[in-house]
Design a protein around this nucleic acid. Structure first.
Lengths: 215, 215, 215, 215
DNA sequence: TATGAATGAGGCTTCATTCAT
DNA sequence: AATGAATGAAGCCTCATTCAT
């Protein structure tokens, strides 16, 4: 490469140039790559080289953005810990049935928790949580608690409305458990297949039973 | 091992002798050590050196019993995959209440699944399952299915007896989900603390509700 | 490299800099080092560490260029398997004597086969050939066959010219055998000394006898 | 195994006993095994474990007979360096032809040098000779020199008898070279196939030419 | 910012050798 | 004389990280 070809300014050279992207774009690419690598192999077995290559960078280029493997890992988990958008609780009007409430809840929970990104984070925390205890707390605050709060709020109001006095109203995690169960099964077996319709249907049926008033 | 049992060897108590143990004893020690190391660090980050030292062996000595790290890992999981002893289903006599059945079930499930060994295996399979897909199958067959079968059988009979027509009778995994949920929480947060009494109580209450006949 | 050429670097001559060389230069250095190590010790006893040090590299640096010891070995042999330049066959003009032909041949064969590189390769193939059977074939095709072809061609034409009907014309390997014998002796005894003049003279004398017509 | 079963003397126990053989038998077995292992893999790559197993011994048992790998190697080569029995030189009576002498010689040389044991030793010396320089000398004295002496003597007498004045009479190694060539080819290519008849025939033809008087 | 050769610590594994039995 | 568990020194190879360009 001669001196002339360097001075030509951006865009004019047709030779294969080094790709210089804005930092935030690169960081996003890197974290996307890191998510795949860390999720597939776990922290220790993931290689900076692979993360770099998957981001379209060389190893050295990766280190221009992150000072260490730990830093990438932490940045990844931090990014994954965005507050989920759970939307508004359902309106409870006259005529709202237990089924409607249950379906709304199950749909929300699965949409939020069965998302591949959530699963990947979930798995990383199971496997490597000890590495980042402060992130575990954050995860609990930002993921678990909002969901439990949503459940508590929604089940409470629906229970009152519907006249249920189920234990569910006091222990909303029981309503979350089937989703967690499915997440676990999904992580352990077939990493691809989404949880079946029937499973969700069963979950709905369970909630209906518990929300329905008894004699 | 109490203090007395150390230093009492016949004659040569003080000199550090090379310990020669029968192979099966060593293998047990090694797998115990491996369980700790693999569970604490995951497969990739665990070091053969540490496993060896924890078994009272040199690195080379370890390789007299296992040909590779993978082999230790697999042997460990295989050992952990013993069929659980779930005991007999509960007698359903006249006078048996939903509470009795529910308590019996919850106790069984927690005793079997919250055991530290089971948790360790569970965690390893979550984190490193892709390494040993055949063991995943075995785990499902030998751990999950028997528990589901126990639930199916017991819930079915209890439901018939008690007059319940809950979805639980068709989808026994719903009754397992709270235990799985607790296992997960136990793994992610505080690796030590056993799941609280209240959680078990809530689980029992849930089952009671579902097993009780409705008007 | 003379003394002057050291210490003259621009500005920083004294500090020990990390040497960064283009890949092909390094590869050449590595294979040179490998040739020495493998030839001196054989494949199994040669150490990657030594090859690295001899190339002015760290162990890890070596692996940036070759993925394994086997790969270095194979690359080395492949490099050694260049077709020899045997030059043109001698002109047979009126007046060409058997001695001239014989001397020309013996000189060619020894120049080509007694070369230290050829000897080193020869020895490696004797000792470690089973490791690289495909290279054995290549070696035969690229080294042995051309020499035999040269002999066949040259002896044939010279024999016709000179009126010889020796078995040599049909079995040219008989004319190669003394060189092989000398190579072997050179390898087994004194690894340094070139084969003596007298030996070559004897070889020439042998060929003369066989090329000369008999009554 | 209880104490009684040990005191019963030899021969009475039908349980699998340790095989205790006379030392010289064991040593022979060990060296046979060593010959195979060293020849197949070379010194560095041969494993004491394999030699032991091939001798029907455990590793420890092997060390009861040889103090080290080097000692086994040296003992093996020493055993291989027995003086070959070349038999008596051929009677040269009136009527003996060059063909008879040549055939007798070629047969002797091949019988002695193409023997698998000789080939194995030959190869070991080529590959590992530097390890045992004193044995190289011995090998020369005990194998090469006798053959050269046989050739010198036989060719000398036959040449005188037949009226040849070939260079062969002064440089008997030239008559040995084709055998060496064949040995080398046999070692490098097909480790099994014996050298062909035609090759031997060619060798004979060569000697006949050189032994026959010229006008 | 980006490259990729280079480093060096550290992990897995092998194997000659020792030794209690 | 024999066993086989055990040692420990090395060797191969990996990979996070550095750095000259």
């Amino acid at each position: 490469m001669n001196v002339m070809s360097l001075g030509e300014g951006p865009g004019l050279s047709c030779t294969r140039q080094r790709q210089r992207l804005p930092s935030d774009v690169r960081v996003r690419q890197i974290l996307d790559a890191a998510q795949l690598e860390f999720s597939e192999r776990g922290f220790a077995a993931a290689r900076m080289d692979d993360i770099a290559r998957r981001s379209g960078l060389s190893k050295g280029g990766l280190y221009a953005h992150f000072a260490s493997k730990d830093e990438v890992f932490e940045a990844l988990l931090t990014r994954s810990l965005r507050l989920p958008d759970l939307g508004d609780p359902p309106p409870l009007q006259s005529g709202t049935t237990a089924r409607e409430v249950a379906q709304w809840l199950v749909e929300r929970l699965h949409a939020s928790l069965s998302h591949p990104d959530t699963l990947a984070t979930f798995r990383l925390l199971m496997a490597e949580g000890e590495r980042v205890p402060h992130l575990i707390d954050a995860w609990h605050r930002q993921l678990i608690e909002p969901h439990l709060a949503l459940l508590h709020e929604t089940l409470g109001r629906a229970g009152a409305w519907l006249g249920s006095r189920s234990v569910l109203l006091r222990e909303p995690w029981l309503a979350l458990a089937p989703v967690v169960h499915l997440m676990v099964m999904q992580l352990i077996f077939g990493r691809v297949s989404a949880p079946g319709r029937e499973a969700r249907e069963a979950h709905v049926a369970l909630l209906i039973e518990l929300l329905s008033p008894r004699e």
